[in-house]
Design a protein around this nucleic acid. Structure first.
Lengths: 197, 197
DNA sequence: TCCGTAACTTGACAGTGTAAAGTTGATGGG
DNA sequence: CCCATCAACTTTACACTGTCAAGTTACGGA
């Protein structure tokens, strides 16, 4: 029963994803190699090929995992701030930004990895779409609460997402000037960025 | 005088950057290797080390080049639309987005490459700051023209930049749902995203 | 003219992704 | 219960990568 003790690892696929996430946190995107992932999972360097077609596929799986977690965290924020659209918008954005700040290299991987994903990684696409739907719902709530102006919810969602994602990305890349960061804490800056436009 | 004919290449540094840009356009970020760059420039695989400390340094140079070109293009838009703040904002953003769409892999490289840049690549930092100052000036013009609400120009610039950069990034990563893209052309969508918030 | 030195080449090495072939061990049919 | 099958894993191999060290070339100044 215990997957750890069985020789045929039992759950190597998930173990590889987990190892990948850890290496990502420890050594960054540049340090993520298939062979290191395999070693950390305690298998030979070619073992991953039993579960992933290639490195891209593993990266897609790690990204997909990340999107799932992000979905859960945003869902929690949603539950906590239902009935308060103003806070809902801010806290959803803040959850997104915190995810980026907490696991910067995974965040980078999630948004700069796979090409031709549409074709090859249906899980990835499905989760992406689910997360976008979640955002659209948040935006609709905000529109009904008068926090966001009326209009096509999907376009409004793209607008909000662009702003929050752009801010997160620029922050991670160190492109936001320190002069701006010194003026207050990051969350305040996020709120400012969010309500401007 | 002709650098091409001299054995000591004469301008290898720039030739390497140019080769890098071409490979980037042809094969993407994943296809960019020091050895390919060297071969395309017609030198041996270790020749780049006479001009760049390592691959990161070459990437930094390619990015810096890109920021310079972006600066020039935005300056052109600025000159063309002075006195029309509404168009100035839109056309500046559109120039940025066009740059991303036209050279997607260089754009990705520019915003997801070097870490610890502050320390190591003063040129990169300087150009980044210059481009940010340029954006702040555009924003100030727009504020004076009543197109953007009053407030600290640097924070307003971060706000606008976040939105445009986020939209560009999400578009390149294929994260913008096709349903939204089918509703109109990309520039219209950009304008919508820009004036929402 | 010659010589120092920067620009380049050659050769080497460890690490990478990935394919092919061999090995192991869980599993279900007789 | 035994054995054949087959997926999960290992081993071996190869081309390619970044980078270093040692050698070679030829430009510019003394």
């Amino acid at each position: 029963m215990d997957p750890k003790n069985s020789y045929h690892h039992g759950d190597l696929k998930n173990a590889l994803i987990k190892a990948g996430v850890e290496i990502l946190a420890r050594e960054g995107v540049g340090g993520l190699s298939l062979r290191k992932v395999a070693k950390q999972a305690g298998v030979s360097h070619a073992a991953p090929y039993a579960h992933f077609a290639d490195k891209q596929a593993l990266i897609a799986a790690i990204s997909t995992e990340g999107f799932k977690q992000l979905h859960v965290q945003i869902e929690a924020a949603r539950a906590a701030y239902t009935g308060d659209p103003r806070s809902l918008l801010v806290e959803t954005a803040w959850t997104y930004l915190q995810f980026a700040l907490h696991e910067p290299d995974r965040f980078k991987l999630m948004f700069s990895s796979v090409l031709e994903k549409e074709k090859d990684y249906p899980d990835f696409v499905e989760i992406s779409q689910r997360n976008f739907r979640q955002l659209v719902e948040v935006v609709e709530t905000c529109q009904q609460g008068g926090v966001l102006k009326a209009g096509p919810p999907d376009l409004a969602a793209i607008s909000v997402w662009s702003t929050v994602h752009g801010f997160s990305s620029l922050l991670l890349e160190g492109q936001i000037p320190h002069t701006a960061l010194e003026k207050g804490n990051i969350k305040d800056l996020l709120v400012f960025v969010l309500q401007n436009g």
